[in-house]
Design a protein around this nucleic acid. Structure first.
Lengths: 165, 165
DNA sequence: GCAATTTATCTTGACGTCAAGATGTCTACT
DNA sequence: AGTAGACATCTTGACGTCAAGATAAATTGC
């Protein structure tokens, strides 16, 4: 019972059912909602991080370094493994953060092919502040789901995600 | 019971719990999985559309025109309402599709500020073919979820999405 | 009718991303 | 030692996106 009101995606599906009744659009509903939700959430997250002078990309790198624990140093390759981006993208992110004085490249005397990316004092202070606001924002964004909804949603996301990683 | 194995996001959360036990990271798990899943799904979708010579962006516009029904014409403004992108992005998408001969701009004699974007014969043929492959791909991507999972997942997505639109 | 406002689309410049390949370094084997 | 291959990072060029503002046309109010 208590079918929710027709939303944007329902209208899209209704158009397809009228125009192409041969297609099974149930998966399209799920994937369409997932994509729209991701876009909305991404924008909400970005808005808060921007108040701390960070893009989502920049925050991702700083947060990865921070949660790796002291001394807050990882190689570009290690950062790459944790962030689903290409090597070129990571190089670019590190360049920007270095220009902003939030990380520094430290040569690795053991292996001169590689470098270590280290949080600077300023980078650590910035990410510590930003992560608090970010987590509070994430709580705000999920507060309209009940505890049961959140648990069930997370279970389904984890199961679905497991198909791809 | 039957807790699933630790995944990438679980490892991130474990790091945060060790480094910042003061933070409540439950929402971060949900939002993190949602983002990663969206990235994976986006790449899978793109791969199939590329086989038909289309980017996801291009397909979105062609599909919006197709499902609007004959004569498959909408103004840029109408396309904008349905696609969550900025006006500059839509102009660029239409430019690319026009160059490729998949749509054409038709002047609107009623209102010379606006134009109508129409699927060409080639555009219609392309999207009809692509949408079949796309829907089949979406079924493949969701086939590891049970019917019950899919219904529940869709319910939660719809409820969550409603907060933002 | 005419000016001010609103509407619809397009332009510009900046940013983040990727794939492909270049560069420099290390390792293993001869 | 020397060389072939593997490895780690960076460079390049193309693409899609956005915010902000430009342009042009329609509408409203006087």
């Amino acid at each position: 019972m208590s079918e929710q009101k027709q939303d944007h995606v329902d209208r899209i599906l209704a158009q397809w059912r009228r125009e192409r009744p041969d297609l099974d659009v149930e998966p399209m509903g799920i994937l369409g909602r997932l994509k729209r939700l991701g876009t909305h959430l991404g924008r909400e997250v970005e808005a808060v991080l921007m108040q701390h002078g960070l893009s989502t990309s920049a925050f991702d790198v700083l947060a990865t370094l921070r949660r790796s624990g002291a001394p807050h140093r990882l190689s570009p390759g290690e950062l790459l493994e944790m962030t689903m981006v290409s090597s070129g993208t990571m190089t670019n992110r590190i360049d920007q953060l270095e220009k902003a004085g939030l990380v520094e490249r430290i040569v690795n005397p053991q292996d001169r092919r590689s470098v270590l990316i280290a949080l600077t004092k300023k980078g650590l202070a910035t990410v510590e502040e930003a992560v608090g606001a970010h987590v509070a924002n994430q709580q705000r964004l999920t507060r309209n789901l009940t505890a049961g909804d959140r648990a069930e949603f997370d279970r389904l996301l984890k199961k679905f995600l497991a198909d791809f990683e």
